[in-house]
Computed example of a mutant assay.
Amino acid sequence: MNAHVMVFAPAPQLTVTIDQPNDEPEIHLHPGGQGVWQARMITCLGTRVVLCASLGGEIGQVLEPLMASEGVELKVVRRDSSSGGYVHDRRDGRRDEIVDVPGHALNRHELDDLYNLALGEGLLAPVSVLSGPGDPSLVPPDIYRRLAADLGRNGSRVVVDLSGDHLRAVLESGVSFLKVSHEELLRDGMADDDSEAELTRVLYELHATGAESVVVSRADEPALTLVNGEVYEVHMPRLEAIDPRGAGDSMTAGVAAVLAAGGDLELAVRTGAAAGGLNVTRHGLGTGRQDSIAGLVERVQLAPIGSGRQDRMTPDDFAGRAAGS
């Protein structure tokens, strides 16, 4: 069987977009949420995906065939409560939110069923992606801690794009690869500021507390990554963005796809950066052409942080600083 990725997407959303590319307005329905967008990009990169999700209510009835049409292998736990969704209007070139309904939290029995489903499918996959719910209240952090532990202990490489309590939970268990944004680190009190030195310190701290490799995205600035004990800036060509949303999800997807195929970490980061960079040039989250992404990978460079500088921080520096704090 070909290598594949299990994506844990506990609470997908229905996205309703009002658009007007020509004279008449249009309404578009799509499945959404972090896990769906990641699965879509992994599929674009030619890697098979098994998507494990919970769906319920009228929204869930609409979501299921839409998700099945994405080209993923869909595994569903059907729930009594309703899935969530949102409506936004982008006719004037902006994204104006009209309504956002997060859905209901999963109950204990639904969580048990979803956990068993994701664990069983994840144990069959070389890489598992744990994606966050749109609203943190929908799924408790401990589900992520347990899933990361059980998958990691049994040979699946766990890739996460989480923040807040859900991130802290998986770090307790350990993960193979973590993607987080600098805005999330600042919001959650995990970084004091957005300086290069501070974010480098945080990279080493995240590694020390449970993440083997880490990428911190920095909006328009080059991402920072810790790979094999070395911190790099991720440099790529400047591209004009149509929609900057979703770059991080596509980056995570690119990393997972390469790791599932047996690629090394540096290639995984470069492919993730290329997938994220190309996604912002398109309408539609988690989309892109595989050949275009492959062409962009060759232009992504990992440059060691502080090369030739006296203030370069090393793992020993971090350890000494932590011991003295």
Rank of each mutant, 00 (worst) to 15 (best):
I143G: 01
L224I: 05
A323H: 10
S69V: 02
L171G: 06
A125F: 07
D150V: 05
A322H: 12
M236R: 08
H207L: 06
L106V: 03
F8S: 00
A322R: 14
D194Q: 11
R145Y: 08
D150T: 11
G272S: 12
R94Q: 11
L147Y: 03
S81L: 12
A294G: 06
I242G: 11
V77D: 00
P222R: 05
G85E: 00
H28I: 12
D243I: 06
A322F: 13
Q38N: 11
A39H: 11
R78T: 13
A247C: 13
S292F: 04
V129F: 05
R157Q: 15
R157C: 08
G164A: 15
T209V: 13
A256H: 01
L302R: 02
V175I: 12
E233P: 02
G272N: 08
S195M: 10
G189A: 15
D188S: 07
D150R: 15
R108G: 06
D150A: 06
V202Q: 04
H104R: 15
E58C: 09
L224R: 00
L162W: 11
A268E: 04
D193H: 04
D243A: 07
S217C: 11
R95P: 04
V127N: 06
A256P: 09
L55T: 00
V139D: 00
D193A: 04
E97Y: 11
V62K: 15
T43M: 07
E233S: 07
A257P: 12
R153W: 08
P140L: 00
E24A: 09
G277T: 04
A322W: 14
G33N: 01
D194S: 10
L265H: 04
M1T: 01
H88I: 04
V127W: 01
R168G: 11
G134Q: 09
H235L: 12
I305D: 00
G84A: 01
L224K: 07
L239I: 05
V300C: 05
R91W: 03
L203Q: 01
H88N: 03
S131Y: 00
R79A: 02
G308L: 11
H104E: 15
T43I: 03
L66D: 03
D96N: 06
G276E: 10
D291L: 06
L162G: 13
R168C: 13
T15F: 07
T17K: 12
R282W: 01
N228P: 05
R245W: 05
T17W: 02
R289F: 10
L206A: 02
G85C: 09
G32Y: 03
A303S: 08
V139T: 04
M6H: 02
R299N: 11
V234Y: 00
A257L: 10
D100F: 14
C44Q: 09
D80H: 09
H207V: 02
